[in-house]
Design a protein around this nucleic acid. Sequence first.
DNA 1: ATTTTGTCGAGTAAACTGATAGGATATAAA
DNA 2: TTTATATCCTATCAGTTTACTCGACAAAAT
Lengths: 162, 162
Amino acid sequence: MRLSKRSEYALRTLINLGVARELGRPLLQISELAEKDNLPVKFLEAILVELKSHGYLDSRRGKYGGYFLKQPMDTIRIGTVIRELEGPLAPIGCVSQNFYERCSCPDEAHCGLRMLMLDVRNAIANILDQHTLAEVVEVTLRKYRRDKVAHPFAAETRKAKK
Amino acid sequence: MRLSKRSEYALRTLINLGVARELGRPLLQISELAEKDNLPVKFLEAILVELKSHGYLDSRRGKYGGYFLKQPMDTIRIGTVIRELEGPLAPIGCVSQNFYERCSCPDEAHCGLRMLMLDVRNAIANILDQHTLAEVVEVTLRKYRRDKVAHPFAAETRKAKK
DNA sequence: ATTTTGTCGAGTAAACTGATAGGATATAAA
DNA sequence: TTTATATCCTATCAGTTTACTCGACAAAAT
């Protein structure tokens, strides 16, 4: 039931870009994003290209370039992102709504495993489809503020850098 | 978020053995189990050996041999089976209860992704850990009875077999 | 002894995962 | 216009996992 590192990094990056935007820094460089979460730079680069190709991000090249969110954060559903990067949320193909695949069993209608896995897929999908990037970013910011710690992309932190 | 075929086949087989037992046939052969769900015989064979090594099944060799459930069905939790075959239920390591792994991010306590994925992991675990093989078998049998169709391992069906 | 079944170890092709390397291209500042 | 700084693009890659298969062997029943 595992999420790939690729998708994990992609989600982390979307969240980071969202938080940074809220803190007044809409644009970040690959190297900054990689450093924040200790991600391999070149791998992240490929992931960013992919996120851009899906329309979530846009970029600017050259000096002072970087990546930024293209869409409003409340239009980006986490479930949608994961499906685009990973494929189905469902544990087995015969309970997937978006990537249905017939299974090998002779009688889907009477399959106990299918019923159980349908519950699982619905539980997953309900959470992931209900939450948008906006909400995750808000939760993250709330946590930082509650504990009175500075986020790595806060404006003050930026100037203090190097 | 996918379950491997290996685990899927394992669960199907446990359910099949459970249903068959309730219908008066505690012991089934590999070939019968494979045929029922159209599974590759040799692959299933390896899976059965693994399930036996985990203590779920026992077997008898030679003529009239086959596999049968070793434990009472209500002691077999689906979540436990999947963890033994697949590893963690959690989407990412830092929210796994049984296979925790630190992630690359600098601050777990303030990670929005982690919160979200913790919800997902709990949703999955709650379903899978609450359900035992006994329940899944019962649900399966109920479906067959409701629709008045014979299960492949029903006693009459067995005799009708070539 | 023969047939029927499970046991076990090895092998394998293809896909996926998690990266890395290096050059091309665009942009902004000096 | 040059130079420094970014992203973009192609390609490669080792290691693991997945979903199987093969074949010799061991035990049990007739």
